[in-house]
Nucleic acid binder design. Structure first.
Lengths: 239, 239
DNA sequence: TTCGGAAATATGATATATCAAATTGCGGCG
DNA sequence: CGCCGCAATTTGATATATCATATTTCCGAA
């Protein structure tokens, strides 16, 4: 369906092309795109209908996300999109710094000319989507951009962990770009990354990526701060 | 049943106390204890009978392990205990160094007197099990020993990743201790760790743990080397 | 005896059924 | 007008059924 599926899918662990697999892939894509909001409840039967499958493979896919901590269960065993507290967010970014920093170092020298071109193309689409206000696409393309680089690190395990972390913050990131956009934030972070990639400079690549992470974390922090001040809001149901 | 379950279980993600949960816990314990050998095939129906449950929750538990990369699936979608190559093992240890090193630093100052006593007790049992040749217990106690410390880091996400990594090498470690024992290896690694823990010295704690990891990796490396030279062996079925 | 392959059996994936707990709706009471 | 409580409905967990492959068994031909 989309390239996000290709890049963000757990190929290493994928079992053939089972129904549960496809559904998982679809859910992953949706989560990365920010289609699920924190606190939203996941309904297995409804998903099953929507996807034209029985509950078994859907449940399998959903529980896989639960196992990865991407989705959560309440005390009353309702499956929900977890809302992350600042502590959790900070920890996620802390580990991301390590993992993605290491991958940047490892990847730098292995980046191909095609990769650079892909980065540029992706960035172009990214900016276009941003201007169009299509934040689903923005989030998708952002992840594609980063993982284009990380893939080159040839460290499948780190890649896997990184994917899990991205999925975990996915729903929270949802609110970030609209805010950044309003503030006309610094979208040249990616430009720095591309430059570093072109030079195949490990340190520079790592640092520019860490800077990007830093500004994301900062934005989320600000967002959370604002939210904490506002009155609690209700969550709308899914059509 | 055993304390390993308590320490190594994914409390953070556990959904109430579902059947699937219990089965998962049991499997985790067994894997950590080295009860499953690489290349061994996992049979969902048989497990279901053994555990007196239907296949649904067993499948759920097993697939959760597959999702975590602890178990694998072959091209013909048979569920197996994966055999790890040297590359994979090296990568696992590489990430373990980072994660467990960070946790050691974070944990050092927070270690309580009770923790130290628990470490000493665990180590005593560990040595006893080693002398008794009870390698299942050796492996269990080794994991308990390490996670006693890691828990104090109060970094649930790192802890989770670490658990996954331990589970991934679990089946491979199976062969390590008998070998180390024969060679009358350096089992004072743990003593160093205990000392560092008593002093609450972050750097020392980290280094002693890294040293422990290093000797494990070395042992596995030697083992793999030897194995590569030997004729391929057949895998026996599970009673 | 050994090998090829068909029949029997086992296994994973999916669908459906059932049950208990949780949620929702609704009507009546204050 | 609001809120309390019971009935209807929903939902997650588990069990069972079914189907398509894969694996094993076993028999006959070379």
């Amino acid at each position: 369906m989309n390239r996000v599926g290709d890049i963000l899918n757990y190929e290493a662990l994928s079992r053939g092309d089972t129904l549960a697999e496809q559904i998982h892939r679809q859910l992953v894509g949706a989560i990365i795109a920010g289609s699920y909001a924190p606190k939203e409840r996941i309904n297995v039967r409804r998903l099953a209908v929507e996807m034209g499958a029985s509950v078994t493979p859907v449940r399998e896919a959903v529980l896989r996300l639960v196992a990865d901590g991407v989705l959560g269960v309440t005390e009353k065993s309702a499956i929900v999109v977890p809302e992350r507290g600042l502590d959790e967010i900070a920890e996620i970014f802390d580990i991301r710094r390590t993992l993605e920093g290491d991958m940047a170092i490892a990847a730098a020298k292995k980046i191909t000319d095609t990769d650079v071109q892909n980065l540029k193309d992706t960035q172009e689409s990214f900016l276009a989507a941003l201007d169009a206000g299509d934040y689903q696409k923005v989030l998708q393309l952002n992840s594609v951009f980063h993982f284009l680089i990380y893939q080159r690190a040839e460290s499948p395990l780190r890649l896997e962990f990184a994917r899990i972390l991205w999925l975990r913050i996915g729903p929270t990131l949802r609110y970030m770009y609209p805010l950044l956009h309003k503030g006309r934030g610094d979208h040249r972070r990616h430009e720095d990354i591309i430059e570093a990639a072109e030079r195949r400079d490990p340190e520079e690549l790592r640092n520019s990526i860490l800077a990007d992470l830093g500004s994301s974390l900062e934005a989320l922090r600000r967002y959370k701060q604002e939210q904490a001040a506002l009155p609690p809001r209700r969550v709308r149901k899914r059509a």
